[in-house]
């Protein structure tokens, strides 16, 4: 069963902070080698969902499985399969790029020649081999993000989670990040969960889940969701679905 289980399977997960229900019966699935977008305005519950998937805290109900491994019962095996790019910048600014990546390799038990080779390979992959010795502080926002993507891949995970990876970046850097991640899916068969509130980043054939006020209110192929809203764009479909929301999606 583990052999053909999806990369990520979230089943009926709910979570509350005190009286506030942050996630309400969320069910979501990322197929192997698939790019799946999680669309939702700020405050929809994306970060809470990410916190649960990355085991910052546990879900009180439902299940999270990574390649068939239950996150609560086999956390170590599940976490080893997963690379994460968080919404906030999480590199040490005063350490060099290589030191940052080396630190992360050690968090996964990798050191020495193997880790070094892996770091060089990934830096080349994100086009920043020449910045290895530079302090992260000297990098641009887009470059730091690329380093964070490299970092998330050090332990060769098969599932990559990105929480608003392009937020705060200029158009060119955004396009770079999207291209790198899409290449990873196409060329390396990586499975990706891409949380965003930016519609341009979603392609018609992508699998999409729309999260709003802690609930999944729509799911399916992006073009199908748009078609249901009378052929309008995904952004318009989203507005129609969430018209009561005070947040206006870009």
């Amino acid at each position: 069963m583990i052999h053909d289980s999806p990369a990520l399977e979230i089943t009926q997960v709910s979570h509350r902070f005190g009286a506030r229900k942050a996630l309400d019966d969320v069910t979501l699935r990322v197929g192997r080698g698939q790019f799946t977008a999680l669309l939702g305005p700020n405050g929809a519950g994306k970060t809470t969902l990410f916190s649960i998937i990355t085991r910052l805290y546990s879900n009180r109900s439902g299940h999270v499985r990574i390649f068939g491994r239950d996150l609560q019962r086999e956390p170590s095996a599940a976490l080893a399969e997963m690379g994460v790019v968080f919404q906030t910048r999480t590199l040490d600014l005063d350490l060099t790029v290589r030191q940052n990546l080396g630190y992360h390799a050690s968090l996964h038990g990798m050191a020495g020649r193997v880790a070094r080779a892996r770091i060089e390979h990934l830096l080349a992959r994100v086009g920043l081999s020449d910045r290895a010795k530079d302090k992260v502080r000297t990098l641009s926002g887009g470059q730091s993000r690329r380093i964070e993507i490299a970092r998330s891949l050090i332990h060769a995970p098969r599932l990559l989670l990105l929480d608003e990876a392009t937020v705060g970046l200029d158009l060119a850097s955004r396009a770079d990040i999207v291209r790198i991640v899409r290449d990873l899916v196409r060329e390396d068969g990586l499975s990706v969960l891409w949380a965003t509130h930016i519609f341009d980043e979603v392609e018609p054939a992508d699998s999409v889940y729309v999260l709003h006020s802690g609930k999944i209110i729509a799911q399916g192929r992006s073009d199908e969701i748009s078609a249901k809203a009378d052929g309008a764009s995904l952004a318009e479909a989203f507005r129609a679905l969430t018209e009561n929301s005070p947040e206006i999606a870009r």
Binding site: S51, T54, R55, L56, P75, S76, A77, L79, A80, M82, V84, F86, Q87, T88, R89, T90, L91, D92, H104, L107, H108, G109
Partner: peptide, 19 residues
């Protein structure tokens, strides 16, 4: 924890107490 590097630490597959 606020800027997130604690979260990175906690995604390590090693048991949390050991981290």
């Amino acid at each position: 924890r606020e800027v997130g590097s604690m979260r990175v630490l906690l995604t390590s597959p090693f048991p949390r107490w050991s981290l």
